[in-house]
Nucleic acid binder design. Structure first.
Length: 283
DNA sequence: GTCGATGTTAGCAC
DNA sequence: TGTGCTAACATCGA
């Protein structure tokens, strides 16, 4: 479930285990996830070590000691994960790339559906520019930027704009729904018609949701009971949370429709629909 | 066998 | 140029 909070959690996990430990070997179990040739990956990593890490949106960079500025790049796609283990027989299913550290610990890049990517960059700034990645939603999203960016996308659906990594990086499908619920804004609002007060609410909600999720290390079951996430399918809700009803309106069922082509959940009372909006059939 | 899925990107229509 | 929509990617698991 790798959106920003998961990637931040992976970053901290890898930081604790792998920084400054020489890399002894690289095992590629499925080259499909690589964006560089396997031989290049191996020669760039073996005998080197990581000196630090950075996360921008859903992209994770593990900085190499040499050459300066170079980094291993990780993107976790839809199903990526990280694990640490010591032996072949402890290797989880779906490990695609494995780093064997000099102390014997192995770091596995897990990805059942292989939408994730492992690569290298000589220059993180250039990498971000090439991919047009916007400011990080947790660390670097100012109200001024959000206001200007939404103003520029005046006809776009609010949900679609927030999912666009060029506008701000790190928000994924469930987080956008949660942010919109907390900000009490309908996902099909048009960006250009938001008021200053609404954008201010939205900005605060982005911070609230991301800080909460990172503090809980992205474990959904630990999120506050008044979070919409408990109404999504991966049920594991804390006691008192309703699966299908609004946390603030126990009698109101959560809506589920496609908005901008993505499964979207919201409360029709908290998040009033824009004039003229009609749900399409089928959910 | 069918369906949907947390992400990204390309191509097409308006 | 901006935007929405769809398909594709590869695969799992319900």
């Amino acid at each position: 479930m790798p959106e920003l909070p998961e990637v931040e959690t992976y970053r901290r996990f890898i930081d604790e285990l792998a920084l400054h430990v020489p890399i002894g070997a690289v095992q590629v179990l499925d080259a499909h996830v690589l964006t560089v040739p396997e031989t290049v990956l191996r020669t760039s990593l073996v005998g080197h070590h990581f000196t630090g890490s950075r996360r921008i949106g859903k992209n994770l960079f593990l900085l190499l000691n040499d050459p300066p500025g170079a980094a291993l790049t990780l993107h976790f796609g839809m199903t990526g994960d990280v694990a640490a283990y010591r032996d072949d027989h402890d290797r989880p299913r779906f490990v695609r790339v494995e780093l064997v550290l000099a102390d014997g610990l192995r770091i596995g890049f897990i990805d059942p559906r292989k939408f994730g990517r492992v690569g290298l960059t000589a220059d993180i700034t250039g990498f971000l520019e090439a991919k047009k990645i916007g400011p990080d939603a947790l660390d670097d999203l100012s109200l001024a930027h959000l206001t200007a960016a939404l103003g520029r996308r005046k006809n776009a659906l609010l949900k679609s704009a927030l999912l666009d990594q060029r506008l701000t990086a790190g928000l994924g499908n469930w987080i956008v729904d949660e942010v919109l619920f907390q900000a009490r804004l309908h996902p099909a609002r048009r960006c250009g018609e938001l008021t200053t007060a609404e954008i201010t609410r939205l900005h605060a909600a982005v911070g609230l949701v991301l800080r909460t999720a990172v503090a809980a290390e992205a474990r959904y079951r630990d999120f506050p009971v008044d979070f919409l996430i408990h109404a999504r399918e991966w049920e594991d809700a804390p006691a008192g949370a309703s699966t299908t009803h609004c946390p603030r309106h126990p009698k109101t069922e959560i809506q589920k429709h496609y908005v901008g082509g993505r499964a979207t959940y919201w409360c029709a009372r908290c998040q009033p629909a824009p004039v003229g909006w009609v749900a399409e059939e089928g959910m």
